[in-house]
């Protein structure tokens, strides 16, 4: 009996310390979501403007044949940028992204396109290397607080490979979109070749004004498109970072709740065991006393 009590006490102690850790993680994550959300909002004007500028150029030039906008006739390979987190403790965050990336890979395979993974985030990298999958490029160390420089590095690698004849023919991004504190959904988007119709600006403003270009439309497009892709990737990284914190907060909250629940049941069991022990001791004493009394009565 005493052994069971000790065992329960030990388990309660260990669950309590786990709960403390998960609770702390939860609080850290919640404070970071706010920061990540602010960064997302701060990056919004730039992204809006650059999308606007790209659609302005594309609507002004009748024959767009920039290498970055032309779809290759027989795409054979596609680069897939998979945005995962560096640390775990975030519930199904990385598993969801990787599952969606697998689905995309199968989907591309049906079209006869080979998917080449470009992976950001340590979790995605280990997932790939554990399975012996080859990665074209990998980046890590910034998933919870990405800077524009990180997006630039990624974009450079992707664009270079896209421009290369023997390189990739399409670019897709798989990332987690931050819809709200409670909802984050995995998003698969194609970045290149650019779909001219696919602009986020509502067509309500009518036809675009006729722009003058400094120096020429081609040069502006040359400079603009890489920036546009960088900004799309930066947006994906920021969304992913905010989502990572949100799912970590949720995962840690349910872990804390579970730990508290466990503590409650263990405490109950422990009290029961203690009570049982006391009851047994009392009945032993009473039984002993009765036996003594009976023996004494028999002697007389």
């Amino acid at each position: 009996m005493g052994a069971q009590l000790r065992l329960l006490r030990r388990r309660i102690r260990s669950v309590k310390s786990t709960a403390k850790i998960t609770r702390a993680q939860e609080l850290i994550a919640s404070s970071r979501i706010v920061k990540a959300q602010q960064r997302m909002q701060a990056a919004e004007p730039y992204e809006k403007e650059i999308t606007h500028a790209v659609s302005a150029v594309l609507s002004n030039t009748s024959n767009v044949d920039h290498p970055l906008t032309v779809a290759k006739e027989n795409p054979a390979t596609a680069g897939v940028l998979i945005v995962t987190s560096d640390r775990g403790f975030a519930g199904g965050f990385n598993a969801n992204v990787l599952r969606e990336a697998e689905a995309l890979k199968n989907h591309l395979a049906e079209r006869g396109i080979e998917a080449k993974p470009f992976v950001a985030g340590r979790k995605g990298i280990t997932w790939h290397s554990f399975r012996g999958r080859e990665m074209v490029a990998e980046w890590s160390g910034f998933s919870d607080n990405p800077s524009y420089g990180d997006a630039k590095r990624i974009a450079e690698a992707l664009i270079e490979s896209f421009k290369d004849e023997a390189g990739i023919d399409e670019i897709h991004i798989v990332y987690t979109r931050f819809v709200s504190m409670l909802t984050q959904s995995v998003q698969v988007t194609r970045v290149l070749p650019l779909e001219v119709e696919e602009t986020e600006i509502e067509p309500t403003e009518g036809p675009m004004p006729y722009y003058e270009f400094e120096p020429t439309a081609g040069d502006v497009l040359d400079a603009l498109l890489p920036r546009y892709i960088e900004s799309r990737i930066f947006n994906a990284l920021l969304q992913s970072a905010a989502s990572e914190h949100a799912s970590r907060r949720r995962a840690m909250k349910s872990a804390t709740d579970n730990a508290n629940e466990l503590i409650r049941t263990f405490t109950q069991q422990m009290n029961q065991a203690r009570q049982a022990e006391i009851t047994q001791e009392i009945s032993e004493i009473v039984g002993g006393a009765n036996a003594l009394a009976d023996a004494a009565a028999g002697k007389e």
Binding site: A53, A56, V57, P209, Y210, Y211, E212, F213, E214, P215, D219, V220, A223, L224
Partner: peptide, 16 residues
């Protein structure tokens, strides 16, 4: 291309 000054009612321009 050089310095550019923009005043109100300028024609639409996109420059690097």
């Amino acid at each position: 291309d050089g310095e550019i000054g923009i005043m109100p009612n300028h024609a639409p321009v996109l420059g690097v």
